[in-house]
Every structure is written in structure tokens, then in C-alpha cells.
């Protein structure tokens, strides 16, 4: 994309915290987008194959948007270089997005957890004092609305299913990855500074709104979340500590790129 380099003034104290925020957002969308794309050709029904493939494509677009902000405003390299040449420990995605796609119930639940959080994040960020981010968030918000529409429809159908196995599998998928989901809200370096400047709230504020919204989504579906007080959040991803699943994914994702990093596409 031929994006003009209009630098927006950023207070020196906010540069590092903003870099952490944008990298976390970009890496989350890149990695989960890649995971979702693994459903292409394998979806349980054609419509779900198309849905996960489309969401994956949206998320690549979102990742590109965040990497572009880092490039234009915070001296990060070109988005392709940034996305495809870093070491595993330089990635700050949460561990939730790294896990293999597993069965459909696992991927669907992860899609619900992630897009519910993404929708809330974009809603807040569309009012950010860092205007380039506010503009991007406004754009992404309209797209995530479709993701949530899809997630809610499918989760509700399976939760209300007369098939006991379907309900049990959904509930198990929720229980199994709840700690990973709470890990999406690992505190970021310097988050308090960005909160005070009305650039982005601290993660715990997003987590509280997410829990509330998640309960509302599951209400009436027969599914429920475990007690968040009793579940240990899986932190570490934002600081470069990852599962054994990330490095193989990065190897595969960058395989073609590494053949010729300078290739013109």
C-alpha cells in the first residue's frame, strides 16, 4: 500500500509503550490469522471453510495496518520485513493464538474469545488520542462486527444443540482455553502512561469488559465460563515467552519469504 508518511506527534515517553501495544496487536492478528487460514479446504462444512478463510484474510489486513503504523510512526522496518524476519522471542503475541487449530470446537471458541476482545479493543481505540490508530481501529471495528456475528451464531447453535456431545465439546473447549484467553490481557509495558494520555486503556479494563460481554454472549446458550478467579491466566507471550507451537508456525509462515526476501510480488 502506498501509504504517505505523515508523522503524528508522539510524546517521547509514549513511544515505547505504544510500540508494545501495536506490536502485541499486530502479532496477535498475524498469528491467529495464519492459524485460521489452516482451515482453508478443511472446514467441517463449506460455509465454515469460507468463514474461517475470510476471517483469516481480514486479520492479515489488520496485522498489516498495525505493522504499517509501527513503520510510519515508530521507526519499525517495512511491514513484511518486520512480520517475517523476527526471532520467536521478539514476537509479543499472546499464547492463545499460537495453539494449533485442534478440532473445530477449539478453533470456534478461540475465534469467539479473540474477536470479542478485538471488537472491544477497536471500539475503545477508535477514540484514541493517537489519531492514526483511531482511524485504523474505526476501520477494523466494522469488520470484526461480522466476525462476532458469525461466532455468536455458531456458538449459540452448538450450545443449544439437542446433541449432548456437541454441547459437551463446546463447554470443554471453553474450559480448556480459558486461562489462555485471560492471557490476552497480560499487562503491557508502560500501559499506565498510555491510559493516562487517553491513547489506550490498561489491559485489566479491557479484561473486565470482556468478561461482562462474554457472559452476555453465552447467556441462554447453556454454555458458561469457569470462575475467572480460580483460573490462572497464561501470561508470558507479551514478553516473548511462547509455546512450542510458535516456532514451527513461524518456520512455515516464512518459508517462501526466506527463499528470496527481496522478491517483488
Amino acid at each position: 500500500m502506498n501509504i504517505p508518511h505523515k508523522s503524528f506527534p508522539i510524546d517521547d515517553a509514549h513511544r515505547e509503550p505504544l510500540r508494545h501495544l501495536l506490536t502485541a496487536l499486530a502479532d496477535d492478528h498475524l498469528i491467529l490469522g495464519h492459524r485460521h487460514s489452516e482451515w482453508t479446504g478443511l472446514g467441517p462444512i463449506l460455509e465454515e471453510d469460507i468463514a474461517f478463510s475470510s476471517i483469516a484474510q481480514d486479520q492479515m489486513g489488520h496485522a498489516l495496518g498495525f505493522y504499517s503504523l509501527l513503520h510510519e510512526h515508530l521507526d519499525a522496518p517495512d511491514p513484511d520485513i518486520h512480520a517475517f524476519t523476527r526471532q520467536e522471542t521478539d514476537f509479543s503475541c499472546c499464547q492463545l493464538v499460537e495453539w494449533p487449530i485442534g478440532d473445530y470446537d477449539f478453533s470456534l471458541t478461540r475465534h469467539l474469545f479473540f474477536d470479542l476482545a478485538a471488537g472491544l479493543r477497536m471500539e475503545t481505540l477508535s477514540l484514541s488520542n493517537f489519531k492514526p490508530l483511531a482511524q485504523l481501529a474505526t476501520k477494523i471495528r466494522g469488520e470484526v462486527k461480522y466476525h462476532m456475528f458469525h461466532a455468536k451464531t455458531m456458538v449459540s447453535q452448538l450450545g443449544k444443540s439437542s446433541d449432548e456431545t456437541a454441547r459437551a465439546r463446546m463447554q470443554t473447549a471453553i474450559n480448556r482455553q480459558f486461562g489462555l484467553a485471560l492471557g490476552m490481557f497480560e499487562p503491557r509495558v508502560g500501559e499506565q502512561l498510555l491510559d493516562e494520555a487517553n491513547i489506550a486503556p490498561i489491559e485489566s479494563k479491557w479484561r473486565d469488559r470482556w468478561l461482562e460481554a462474554l457472559n452476555a454472549v453465552l447467556d441462554g446458550t447453556g454454555l458458561h465460563i469457569p470462575d475467572p478467579e480460580r483460573i490462572e491466566p497464561v501470561y508470558g507471550g507479551r514478553r516473548g515467552y511462547h509455546t512450542e507451537y510458535l516456532q514451527p508456525l513461524l518456520n512455515e509462515m516464512t518459508e517462501v519469504f526466506r527463499l528470496d526476501p527481496q522478491a517483488e510480488w
Binding site: N2, P4, T138, K139, G142
Partner: peptide, 12 residues
């Protein structure tokens, strides 16, 4: 001629 794509106006 310069063509610039950005999000300063959000398409809907």
C-alpha cells in the same frame, strides 16, 4: 500523479 491510500476517511 500520486495515489495515496489511507484510513483518514473510513469507507462504508
Amino acid at each position: 500523479v500520486q495515489v495515496e491510500t489511507d484510513f483518514s476517511v473510513t469507507w462504508n
